[in-house]
Simulated scan of single mutants.
Amino acid sequence: MTEDAWTVPSYYERIDEGRYKPTAHASGAWSTDEQHFSPLGGLVVHAMERHLDSETRPDMLFSRLSFDILGRIALDECHISVETVRPGRTIELVEATVTIAERNVVRARAWLLAGQDTSAVAGGEPAALPSPEPLDGWALSEQWPGGYIASLDLRPVGTPRPGRTTAWVSTPLALVHGEQSGPLANYIALVDTANGIAVRQPPTQWMYPNVDMSVHLYRRPEGRWTGLDTTVVFGATGLGVTSTVLHDLHGPVGYAQQALTVRPQPRREVSDEGA
């Protein structure tokens, strides 16, 4: 780790093994005194990868990552514990739990599969996205508050539409202060942005936070850009789904799904003095 790496702003600071303190850059879009799930998801992957390194595992590939959000994720110190629940030479299952103030707030599981050469039969993926380099930036912070959204370099592909947006997202920030995180952790740290780029209804009038996020990969992501080709659907009974085709600069890498709870924002009572 070079001296310059210690001067880069970050989403988290390590307190000790398994314990992290979020910075203001991790603050959420629905409430700025909560963590945005996107960088926390990346932090969980970072913790999983450190756990796998400590076991001196062979080169295994993350195939599926699932995150269940169990409740409010306060902008406070968090502890991440990781265990291997199904060890194996070719298939392995790893589980992580995030705890804040002695309360479990996230459970995550990852299936890892042994890599092998299947290039002779590879195919079926969607078309690649155009490069982000010539695209104009998008100030998403005009729609959403919070330090996380403000930290992003976001570049839409075409014009964003209600419920349908394609965009590239990147960040100059480190995941953990003074630490080198891997390409997958950095990539996953941006995926949850998807639920905020294809807004169907103004977030000042409607709430639609996700209660989970699942990511299925058929290729290991590379590079600093995460491509999100996102569709948001609201049902008629309070349920919604955000579906995203995931890309890096070399093309598509997999898919993400998020289950949404859709409900109107609570009406604020106006006092006589403020009327």
Rank of each mutant, 00 (worst) to 15 (best):
M48I: 08
V8Y: 05
L249F: 08
E125N: 09
G274Q: 13
V233A: 13
T230P: 05
V94Y: 11
A259N: 09
G71R: 10
T118P: 03
S27E: 04
T2H: 12
K21E: 11
T32R: 13
R103V: 02
G235P: 01
L43D: 05
Q201M: 12
S141Y: 09
G178C: 00
M1T: 06
G254V: 00
Y11F: 15
F67T: 04
P22K: 07
Q201Y: 07
P264R: 09
P264I: 02
R86P: 03
P130C: 05
S119Q: 13
P87C: 10
D153A: 08
R155S: 03
A5I: 05
A47P: 05
T244P: 06
A139V: 08
T244M: 08
L140Q: 05
P145G: 02
L40I: 05
D16L: 00
L184N: 04
E17R: 15
G42E: 01
R219I: 02
V106G: 03
A96R: 09
T261E: 05
A174M: 03
I80C: 01
V157N: 06
T237N: 13
A108R: 09
G238T: 09
L93C: 12
R72Q: 14
R219H: 10
R224E: 14
L246G: 11
M48R: 08
V121S: 14
R89A: 13
T261A: 15
E142V: 12
R164S: 13
C78M: 14
H25M: 04
P162E: 05
A198Y: 07
G254H: 08
C78V: 04
S181T: 12
S214M: 12
E273S: 11
D248P: 04
V105D: 03
L175F: 06
A101E: 11
G124S: 07
D33P: 04
D117E: 13
G251I: 01
P183I: 00
P130H: 11
A128H: 11
P134T: 00
G123C: 07
Q180N: 14
I197A: 04
T193S: 09
E49D: 14
R64W: 07
C78Y: 01
T171F: 07
R268T: 10
G240H: 12
S151Q: 04
P209V: 04
G235C: 02
L52G: 01
T84M: 00
Y11A: 00
L70P: 04
G137S: 12
A110I: 00
I188G: 01
H36A: 14
L260T: 09
P252I: 03
Q205W: 07
V262C: 08
E17N: 12
D248C: 05
L175T: 01
Q258T: 08
V98M: 07
R263S: 12
V85S: 10
M1P: 08
V253M: 11
T118R: 15
S81D: 15
R200T: 06
A29V: 01
G235V: 01
L173F: 08
Q205C: 06
S66I: 07
E269A: 14
G240Y: 10
I91D: 08
K21D: 07
D248K: 10
W30H: 02
L246S: 07
D153V: 08
